[in-house]
C-alpha cells in the first residue's frame, strides 16, 4: 500500500533532530523523511514519487541556504504530485511579505513560529494530516490511532459507506 510521508526541510541538524523527535508519535503511520535544503528536498520528493508513495505534510524552515522555504512551497504547490500536500512553514523569522506570499502562492496551510512547543507542533501536524487523509484517502480507520478521531469519525460516517 502506498505510504503517506511527512517531509521536514530544515538546514540545522539540531533543529531537525528535535522536530523528528516531536513527531515520532506519528511515524508509525506516517514515515518521516528529512532534507537539509530545498535542493535535497527536491531529490527526496522525487524518490518518494518514484516509490509510488505520497507526501501528506511538508514542514519547512524558511531561512535556508539556497532556495527559501517559501520558494520550495510555491514549487510544490505548482506540481500536481505535491499540490495536495499540506504545507506548514516553520521558522524563527519571516517578514510579513514572505508570509503573505506563502499564503497566497504556496497555499501555505499553517505557520509555526520558533521556538515551538511539542504540543503545538504535533497538533498542527495532526490537524493537517487529518485534513489530508480525509481529502485524499479512502480507508480512514487506520489513521484513528494517531490523527483527530472526531473529525475522522465524521468523515467516515459521511463518506458514503452506507
Amino acid at each position: 500500500m502506498a505510504e503517506i510521508y511527512i517531509i521536514c526541510v530544515e538546514d540545522e541538524p539540531q533543529v531537525l533532530d528535535v522536530i523528528i523527535r516531536d513527531l515520532s508519535a506519528l511515524e508509525e503511520v506516517f514515515p518521516i523523511e528529512v532534507a537539509h535544503s530545498a535542493d535535497e528536498a527536491r531529490v527526496l520528493i522525487r524518490e518518494i514519487r518514484e516509490d509510488g508513495n505520497h507526501i501528506g505534510l511538508a514542514l519547512c524552515d524558511h531561512v535556508m541556504p539556497g532556495d527559501k522555504g517559501v520558494d520550495l512551497m510555491i514549487e510544490m504547490q505548482q506540481d500536481a504530485f505535491t499540490e495536495k500536500t499540506r504545507k506548514v512553514l516553520l521558522t524563527g523569522q519571516a517578514g510579513l511579505e514572505e508570509t503573505i506570499e506563502a499564503i497566497n502562492n504556496a497555499r501555505l496551510n499553517r505557520y509555526i513560529a520558533k521556538p515551538w512547543t511539542p504540543e503545538q507542533l504535533v497538533k498542527v501536524a495532526v490537524d493537517e494530516l487529518t485534513t489530508y487523509v480525509i481529502e485524499q484517502e479512502k480507508d480512514l480507520l487506520q489513521y484513528m490511532g494517531v490523527l483527530d478521531q472526531a473529525r475522522l469519525q465524521e468523515a467516515i460516517r459521511n463518506k458514503g459507506y452506507i
Binding site: 484513528m144 463518506k159 452506507i162
Partner: peptide, 16 residues
C-alpha cells in the same frame, strides 16, 4: 443500515 456503514461507524467508537 448497511453492514459496511455500520462497521465503519462503530469502528470509530471502538478504536479510541
Amino acid at each position: 443500515m448497511s453492514n459496511t456503514a455500520t462497521t465503519a461507524m462503530m469502528m470509530t467508537v471502538a478504536i479510541p
